[in-house]
Amino acid sequence: MTQAAMKQAPKSNVRWLIAACAGILFALRAEPLWAAQYAGALPWDQTLGAIQDILVGPVAHVVITLNFAFSAILYTVGSHQRAGRLLAGGLAAYAGLIAVHLLTYLSPF
Protein backbone atom coordinates (compact mmCIF):
# COMPACT_ATOMS: atom_id res chain seq x y z
CA MET A 1 0.00 0.00 0.00
CA THR A 2 2.93 2.32 0.61
CA GLN A 3 4.19 1.85 -2.91
CA ALA A 4 0.73 2.65 -4.26
CA ALA A 5 0.72 5.97 -2.38
CA MET A 6 4.21 6.75 -3.62
CA LYS A 7 3.18 6.09 -7.20
CA GLN A 8 0.21 8.45 -6.92
CA ALA A 9 2.27 11.52 -6.00
CA PRO A 10 3.88 12.91 -9.14
CA LYS A 11 7.51 13.85 -8.88
CA SER A 12 6.86 17.38 -10.10
CA ASN A 13 4.82 18.13 -6.96
CA VAL A 14 7.65 16.94 -4.73
CA ARG A 15 10.13 19.12 -6.60
CA TRP A 16 7.78 22.08 -6.42
CA LEU A 17 7.34 21.52 -2.67
CA ILE A 18 11.09 21.36 -2.10
CA ALA A 19 11.59 24.53 -4.16
CA ALA A 20 8.84 26.34 -2.24
CA CYS A 21 10.30 25.32 1.14
CA ALA A 22 13.78 26.40 0.06
CA GLY A 23 12.41 29.75 -1.12
CA ILE A 24 10.56 30.31 2.15
CA LEU A 25 13.63 29.37 4.21
CA PHE A 26 15.78 31.70 2.10
CA ALA A 27 13.34 34.57 2.56
CA LEU A 28 12.99 34.03 6.32
CA ARG A 29 16.64 33.51 7.18
CA ALA A 30 17.94 35.51 10.11
CA GLU A 31 19.81 38.68 9.27
CA PRO A 32 22.10 40.56 11.64
CA LEU A 33 20.10 43.71 10.95
CA TRP A 34 16.96 42.11 12.38
CA ALA A 35 18.62 41.56 15.74
CA ALA A 36 18.68 44.05 18.60
CA GLN A 37 21.05 47.00 18.71
CA TYR A 38 23.45 44.88 20.69
CA ALA A 39 24.05 42.33 17.94
CA GLY A 40 27.13 40.86 19.59
CA ALA A 41 25.76 41.04 23.12
CA LEU A 42 23.61 38.66 25.12
CA PRO A 43 19.82 39.13 25.08
CA TRP A 44 19.61 40.50 28.61
CA ASP A 45 22.44 43.04 28.27
CA GLN A 46 20.12 45.79 27.08
CA THR A 47 17.79 45.29 30.06
CA LEU A 48 20.65 45.15 32.55
CA GLY A 49 22.15 48.26 30.99
CA ALA A 50 18.88 50.14 31.42
CA ILE A 51 18.57 49.03 35.05
CA GLN A 52 22.17 50.08 35.70
CA ASP A 53 21.55 53.49 34.14
CA ILE A 54 18.51 53.99 36.39
CA LEU A 55 20.25 52.83 39.57
CA VAL A 56 23.46 54.75 38.96
CA GLY A 57 21.60 57.83 37.76
CA PRO A 58 18.63 59.36 39.55
CA VAL A 59 18.12 56.68 42.20
CA ALA A 60 21.67 56.90 43.50
CA HIS A 61 21.60 60.70 43.58
CA VAL A 62 18.32 60.74 45.50
CA VAL A 63 19.56 58.17 48.02
CA ILE A 64 22.81 60.06 48.63
CA THR A 65 20.99 63.38 48.95
CA LEU A 66 18.53 61.89 51.45
CA ASN A 67 21.47 60.41 53.35
CA PHE A 68 23.10 63.83 53.68
CA ALA A 69 19.77 65.44 54.63
CA PHE A 70 19.06 62.86 57.34
CA SER A 71 22.57 63.20 58.72
CA ALA A 72 22.06 66.98 58.97
CA ILE A 73 18.73 66.43 60.72
CA LEU A 74 20.34 63.99 63.16
CA TYR A 75 23.16 66.44 63.83
CA THR A 76 20.75 69.26 64.63
CA VAL A 77 18.69 67.01 66.90
CA GLY A 78 21.79 66.24 68.92
CA SER A 79 22.72 62.70 67.89
CA HIS A 80 26.24 63.58 66.73
CA GLN A 81 27.61 60.02 66.65
CA ARG A 82 24.78 58.67 64.49
CA ALA A 83 24.94 61.73 62.26
CA GLY A 84 28.67 61.16 61.75
CA ARG A 85 28.10 57.52 60.83
CA LEU A 86 25.33 58.43 58.41
CA LEU A 87 27.50 61.16 56.88
CA ALA A 88 30.36 58.67 56.47
CA GLY A 89 27.95 56.26 54.78
CA GLY A 90 26.82 59.00 52.41
CA LEU A 91 30.39 59.91 51.54
CA ALA A 92 31.22 56.24 50.95
CA ALA A 93 28.17 55.85 48.70
CA TYR A 94 29.20 58.95 46.76
CA ALA A 95 32.75 57.60 46.39
CA GLY A 96 31.32 54.32 45.14
CA LEU A 97 29.17 56.18 42.62
CA ILE A 98 32.22 58.04 41.35
CA ALA A 99 34.08 54.73 41.04
CA VAL A 100 31.20 53.22 39.02
CA HIS A 101 31.17 56.24 36.70
CA LEU A 102 34.95 56.01 36.28
CA LEU A 103 34.87 52.29 35.50
CA THR A 104 31.99 52.78 33.06
CA TYR A 105 33.99 55.54 31.35
CA LEU A 106 37.15 53.45 31.14
CA SER A 107 35.43 50.24 30.01
CA PRO A 108 32.06 50.94 28.38
CA PHE A 109 31.40 47.28 27.56
Rank of each mutant, 00 (worst) to 15 (best):
D53A: 15
N13A: 12
L55Y: 11
L28S: 12
A99Q: 06
L17D: 03
V100F: 11
L42E: 09
A69D: 07
N13Q: 09
L102F: 15
F109R: 12
R85P: 01
V59M: 10
A88T: 08
L102K: 13
F70Q: 14
E31N: 14
L74K: 08
A4M: 07
H80D: 15
S107P: 00
L74W: 04
Q37K: 09
A72I: 11
A9I: 15
Y94L: 13
P32H: 06
L106V: 08
A39T: 08
W34A: 08
Q52L: 10
I24T: 12
V63L: 09
L42S: 12
R85L: 14
A39I: 12
G89V: 03
D53L: 09
I54L: 13
Y105T: 07
A22N: 03
T65W: 04
S12N: 06
C21W: 10
Q3P: 00
F109G: 02
T47D: 05
G96V: 03
L97W: 13
V62R: 07
L17P: 00
A36C: 05
T104I: 11
V100E: 13
V100S: 12
V59K: 05
A60E: 05
F70V: 03
I24E: 01
A5F: 08
A35N: 04
Q8N: 10
A83R: 06
G96M: 02
L74M: 14
A88W: 02
I24F: 14
G78F: 01
L25R: 01
Q3H: 07
D45F: 01
P43T: 04
